[in-house]
């Protein structure tokens, strides 16, 4: 993880790491639920990506501003409250101005709250860095997420419906592969896209003589991190989420969040 050196990075490096090298869905395997669920059409993917980017940037700035005020032991509930406030804001905006998108995204719009990317950046970056850097980091991650959503939905829409953003692309004599816009198609396309990004990385690693790495086994970083149990530096994390948890649950139990207090704090912070 590049977090230690993050403060010294230039703004461009800070922004661009989210695009490819640390791309949230293709590299870190975070936020897979929306990546799979809403990518049946390019407009939906783009809308979801932009909504998440907005939440990432805003919550990054607020978390960063409050990083010295929020007590460490209750930081996760506090972050969730901040994120949920911005998600509510996005929901209101989308409902008012883009009703068609609101219908298409449906339940996945409020579920940005539990998107591992947002909480992950709050925990791993924004809570340790100044507001501007956090905003740039959030923007980079958000744009990277949007790019992978658009890429994924372009493949699925083109093959599954023969269109791109609603415009007919494929000649009409080619029968659309309906399977691509159904759930199994989502899993398959994501698998192939991740394999593609791994293949590119492996090819580059070979050229530069670096050791070749396989794709991670599971998105364990994200889940464990989301509940504040994860130490990103821990090498255990790549092994097995369940095993790591057994060891860390006891420690986490000591941090009994006083949620009632947090709620008040979080609300004040947003006002």
């Amino acid at each position: 993880m590049a977090n230690e050196a993050a403060a010294k990075q230039s703004a461009w490096e800070n922004f661009s790491k989210g695009l490819l090298t640390e791309n949230p869905s293709l590299r870190q395997m975070l936020g897979l639920c929306p990546t799979l669920a809403v990518t049946t059409a390019v407009t939906n993917g783009l809308g979801m990506g932009l909504a998440t980017t907005f939440v990432l940037v805003c919550s990054g700035v607020v978390v960063s501003l409050l990083r010295k005020v929020i007590p460490n032991s209750v930081r996760i509930p506090a972050f969730i409250t901040i994120i949920a406030s911005f998600v509510t804001l996005v929901m209101m905006l989308v409902e008012a101005y883009l009703p068609a998108l609101n219908d298409a995204l449906g339940i996945y719009l409020p579920l940005i709250v539990v998107n591992c990317i947002v909480l992950g950046r709050a925990e791993m970056y924004a809570s340790k860095n100044p507001p501007l850097a956090s905003a740039i980091d959030g923007l980079g991650m958000g744009v990277g997420f949007t790019i992978s959503l658009v890429l994924m939905s372009a493949v699925r829409e083109l093959l599954g419906a023969g269109t791109l953003a609603g415009i007919q692309i494929m000649p009409s004599f080619i029968e659309p592969m309906i399977i691509m816009v159904t759930p199994p198609g989502g899993f398959a396309v994501l698998g192939v896209l991740i394999a593609g990004s791994v293949w590119l990385e492996q090819r580059r690693a070979r050229k530069e003589g670096r050791p070749v790495e396989a794709a991670p086994e599971s998105p364990c970083d994200g889940c464990a991190l989301a509940c504040g149990l994860n130490d990103p530096a821990s090498p255990d994390c790549a092994r097995d989420a369940a095993d790591v948890l057994v060891a860390k649950v006891e420690a986490a139990l000591e941090e009994e969040p006083r949620i009632v207090r947090v709620e008040v704090q979080g609300e004040e912070a947003d006002a």
Partner: peptide, 23 residues
């Protein structure tokens, strides 16, 4: 599986086949 498919990608593709049965 082929090298690039090891780990997550092949898991996702198996998930696709499992999901197919639910369709």
């Amino acid at each position: 599986p082929p090298e690039a498919f090891r780990g997550m990608p092949i898991t996702l593709i198996s998930a696709a086949i499992t999901a197919l049965s639910f369709v």
